Simulated assay, not measured.
Amino acid sequence: MAVNVGPSVAPGDRVQSRALVPGPELTLVIPTMNERDNVAPLVERLDRVLAGIAWEAIFVDDDSLDGTRDEIRRLSERDGRLRCLHRIGRRGLSSACIEGIQASLSPYVAVMDADLQHDEALLPAMLDCLKAEPLDLVVGSRYVEGGGVGDWDRRRAGMSGLATALGRLVLKVRIADPMSGFFMIRRDAFERAVRSMSAVGFKILVDLLASSSKPVRLKELPYQFRQRHAGESKLDAFVAWEYLVLLADKILGPYVPVRFVLFSMVGGIGVVAHLTILGLALNVAHLSFALSQGLAAGIAMIGNFALNNFLTYSDRRLKGWNFLKGLVTFALVCGVGYAGNVGVAKYLFDSHSSSWWLAGIAGAAIGSVWNYAVSSVVTWKRK
Rank of each mutant, 00 (worst) to 15 (best):
D128K: 14
G167L: 09
G140K: 05
L169A: 11
F183L: 06
P178G: 12
R155E: 13
Q117R: 15
G167E: 03
G150F: 07
A125H: 14
K131H: 13
L169F: 04
M159C: 00
K214H: 13
D113C: 02
V139G: 05
V170I: 13
D188G: 01
V109F: 02
S141C: 07
G201N: 02
R195I: 01
S160D: 07
I101H: 01
S213L: 10
G158K: 09
Q117D: 00
L93V: 14
V206P: 06
G158D: 12
M112Q: 03
S198W: 00
S180T: 12
R195V: 04
V139C: 13
V149G: 08
R155T: 11
L162W: 07
A121V: 09
L162M: 13
L123T: 06
R156M: 15
F183E: 08
A189G: 03
A193Q: 10
V194R: 14
P107F: 03
E133K: 15
S160L: 10
A96D: 02
G148K: 07
I98E: 04
I98K: 01
S94R: 03
A132P: 00
I98R: 09
E133S: 13
T164S: 12
P124E: 04
S104V: 07
S196T: 08
L209D: 10
S104H: 04
K172Y: 03
G100K: 03
L123H: 07
G146R: 05
L116M: 12
S95A: 14
S160I: 09
K172D: 14
R186Y: 02
A193R: 09
I175D: 08
R156K: 14
D151M: 05
G201Y: 04
Y108M: 05
M112I: 11
W152D: 14
L208R: 09
E191W: 00
L137H: 08
I204K: 04
V200E: 09
A210Q: 13
L135N: 14
G140F: 01
D207T: 13
L137E: 11
D113N: 12
D177E: 11
R168D: 00
L162P: 00
R187V: 10
L135H: 13
L205N: 09
E120V: 15
R156L: 15
A163E: 00
K203F: 11
S94P: 06
L171R: 10
D128F: 06
S212W: 04
L209F: 12
V173F: 10
A103D: 13
A96R: 07
G146P: 08
D119H: 09
D188F: 05
D136Y: 10
C97E: 06
Y143M: 04
M159H: 04
L171W: 10
A163Q: 03
R192S: 11
G181T: 05
A132K: 15
D151A: 12
V173Y: 11
L208V: 12
R168T: 00
H118P: 00
V170K: 12
S211M: 13
E120A: 15
A176H: 10
A125M: 05
G181R: 02
L209G: 08
V206N: 10
L122M: 11
R187A: 06
G100D: 02
V111P: 03
D128Q: 15
L122N: 02
R168V: 01
L166V: 06
L127M: 08
M179K: 02
A114W: 06
L205P: 03
G148T: 02
